[in-house]
Nucleic acid binder design. Structure first.
Lengths: 118, 118
DNA sequence: CCAATTGTTCAATAACTCTTGAACTAAGGA
DNA sequence: TCCTTAGTTCAAGAGTTATTGAACAATTGG
C-alpha cells in the first residue's frame, strides 16, 4: 500500500526543474515549505483545483522525488523531501522557495488552517 | 535589429524553471556557464540538434530572461544573464549549474572548440 | 453491513512542446 | 553583383501536459 518514490540518487535535475516549472506545483511546494516539515494531508490544500487535478500534481511531485506521500488510513500525508533534495542538489530547493516567496505573480500560499467545528 | 528580452523584473520564476527543465536547454546553459561570461555565437554549439531546433531553444532561453543575444553582423552573441538572474533569484542559477555538473545523465557539455583549418 | 470520507484511476479533450525541412532575411566577401 | 554564411520564420507532425467528470478502491464510523 505504499506509493512509489524514487530514491535519492534517482532524482533527476531536469525532471525536478520541469516539475517545479508549473505555478500550481510551485504553490504546493511553497505551501509545504511554509509548514516547516509537518506532513499534511491532501484535503488541506484543496484550493489547488479539482480533486483529480490535485492528485495529478501531487503524483508528479512525488514521482519526481520532490515530495513524499505516506498512507495513513484514508489520508496521504505529504511532506517535502528537503534532506534528500539538499543532498542531491545543494541549495536548489532553498533558492527556489526563497524566490517563490518574493514573486507576487504566484498563487498565494493557500490551505485553510484546520478548524474544529467549521 | 535587437532581439526582444524581458527586463530583470519581468523574469518569472516558473517560466525560468520550466525552461531549464529541458535537457537540451540545461546543456546549453551549462555550456555557456563553462565559458565564464564570454559571449558565443550559435554555431559553436551545433551539437544540439538541427539549426532550427537550436534557434528554437535559444529563443526560449532568451524570452525567459536566462540568456542575452546580441546581434553582431550575421552572428548572434549569446551570453548568460548571470547578474540579472542572481539579482532576481539569488543562488538559483549557481545551484542549478552545480547540480547539472554532477549529473552524468545530462548531455555532455559539447561545443567543438574553434579550429582553424578543420 | 451500510454509508461517508479520501484519494486514485480512467477516458476524453484542449492546449502546449519539441522536432524537422523548406523557404526566407540579412550581412560579408570575392 | 553573386555566392556563402548565420539565423529566423513558417507549416506540419508526433508527443506530452493539464484539466475535468465519472467510476472505482479502501478505510473509518455508525
Amino acid at each position: 500500500m505504499t506509493l512509489p518514490h524514487p530514491n535519492t540518487d534517482q532524482i533527476s535535475l531536469p525532471i525536478v526543474l520541469g516539475v517545479l516549472g508549473d505555478p500550481t506545483r510551485l504553490a504546493i511546494v511553497r505551501y509545504l515549505a511554509s509548514k516547516q516539515g509537518v506532513p499534511l494531508n491532501c484535503s488541506q490544500f484543496l484550493n489547488f483545483g479539482s480533486k483529480t487535478n490535485l492528485s495529478y500534481h501531487l503524483a508528479k511531485l512525488r514521482e519526481a522525488g520532490v515530495t513524499r506521500a505516506e498512507v495513513a488510513g484514508t489520508n496521504r500525508m505529504i511532506s517535502l523531501r528537503r534532506a534528500d533534495l539538499d543532498a542531491r542538489f545543494p541549495g536548489l530547493l532553498d533558492s527556489v522557495i526563497a524566490a517563490a516567496g518574493d514573486d507576487p505573480a504566484l498563487p498565494a500560499v493557500g490551505g485553510h488552517d484546520i478548524e474544529v467545528h467549521a
